[in-house]
Write a protein that binds this DNA or RNA. Structure first.
Lengths: 106, 106
DNA sequence: CTTATAGGGAACCTATCGGTTACATGTCAA
DNA sequence: TTGACATGTAACCGATAGGTTCCCTATAAG
């Protein structure tokens, strides 16, 4: 799994919004995902392409329509990994930070 | 907490690497954080400024040195939030995705 | 006091990003 | 078959991101 692609994909608010929309209703077409957004269809398609490249979204052709599906695996995997990575030592880091900001040595 | 700032801060691999370094050893100076990186000190300082703006890193002046401390709160908060947000419905989304990719209707 | 060290600040450069407009393709429906 | 509809492709554009260079300030060390 490509961490970098996922982080870059999530860095844009419009793309996170698209994920939200798919989360609320999965399997939407490009046209549906465009509704109410202040962006051209082409811009939305580019965002979806980036989400697809990060494997956060998959799609399926259905006639002339393109149905988009959220892929919950990478986002959860990365979040879990980062949590477990920083969780060990989290309290210690917090204490260190607090002491430092108070002007003492940890 | 500003989600957008955190996501944008995490989008860059160099900044994630800086967080890693601080995670391995907290309280490092700017100079220490520069060691071994193929970047100028100014570039590293810019990255740290972005991490500070996202509240992922705090610092403390000590004489002419600047000590950097990781702040574990926002990263965990966002990760937890995204996990809980997508966790409900995760299995359903996975099943939907699988069926779609197999060419059937969910 | 002088000098080396740690960091700050600003101008500048280039690649990439987010977005647009214009046009092409493919598919459904009458 | 003809036209409307859903999407794809490509050229282009302004803003921003990441990085550099050059110079300045402040603290420590001799």
């Amino acid at each position: 799994m490509d961490d970098d692609a996922v982080f870059r994909a999530l860095a844009d608010a419009s793309r996170r919004q698209l994920l939200d929309r798919l989360h609320r209703r999965n399997g939407q077409t490009l046209g549906e995902l465009c509704e109410g957004l202040e962006m051209t269809r082409q811009a939305v398609a580019k965002h979806l392409a980036i989400l697809e490249e990060a494997n956060l979204v998959s799609f399926k052709r259905q006639g002339r329509e393109k149905l988009h599906f959220i892929n919950p695996v990478p986002i959860n995997a990365i979040a879990e990994r980062w949590i477990s990575k920083f969780e060990r030592g989290r309290l210690r880091a917090l204490a260190t930070l607090k002491k430092a900001l108070e002007g003492e040595e940890p």
